[in-house]
């Protein structure tokens, strides 16, 4: 399931592209007024760090491109099998959906959905696990709302 070599090469290339984009944005940093001439320019440090990131990403690309591995991960894959990949990616989607639903519809609908959606994403079928997770969700809500006095809206 997706070799480390391909995934890491693509990731490093993306890092290089994004770093160049950020370095370009940093070119536009300007201080105004009296502080404008104090010390080193604001772009200095971010661009220095971005330069280091780009150098590291190029070396990583080189290692995967020429040697086929970096740190002894030759022949390894990102996911052990298709099931792991599906569960991990679906869970990631569920967490983003729950965050967005909290912002749009409020805490309680999100909290009710989070448990079952997560369990569905993980392929869980036992009803007692759904009940347990809902119970724990209720406990979290009660503790934060009534014990700590936090308004979860």
């Amino acid at each position: 399931m997706l070799s480390q070599r391909i995934a890491n090469t693509v990731f490093a290339l993306l890092v290089i592209l994004i770093s160049f984009y950020f370095a370009w944005i940093a070119e536009g940093f300007e201080a105004s007024g009296l502080l404008a001439s104090s010390g080193l320019p604001s772009k200095f440090f971010p661009q220095l760090i971005l330069g280091t990131i780009i150098a590291c990403a190029i070396i990583t690309c080189y290692l995967y491109g020429i040697k086929g591995e970096a740190g002894g991960d030759a022949g390894e894959t990102v996911f052990d099998n298709a099931g792991d990949a599906r569960r991990g990616i679906l869970m990631l989607i569920v967490s983003v959906v729950c965050y967005l639903s909290w912002r749009s519809f409020g805490f309680i609908p999100m909290a009710i959905l989070l448990g079952p959606l997560s369990l569905l994403a993980m392929g869980i079928k036992q009803p007692y696990i759904y009940a347990t997770v809902w119970g724990l969700t209720g406990c979290v809500y009660l503790i934060f709302t009534y014990l700590l006095g936090i308004q979860l809206v």
């Binding site: 869970m91 967490s95 729950c98 965050y99 909290w102 999100m110 909290a111 989070l114 448990g115 997560s118 369990l119 993980m122 869980i124 696990i129 347990t132 997770v133 724990l136 969700t137 979290v140 934060f144 700590l148 936090i150 979860l152």
Partner: peptide, 20 residues
């Protein structure tokens, strides 16, 4: 304790903890 119980509970605790 099944991982399937831990995963949503920790995620919810992280959400609520940071929001608070």
């Amino acid at each position: 304790v099944p991982t399937s119980v831990i995963v949503p509970t920790v995620l919810l605790l992280s959400f609520v903890g940071i929001y608070s």
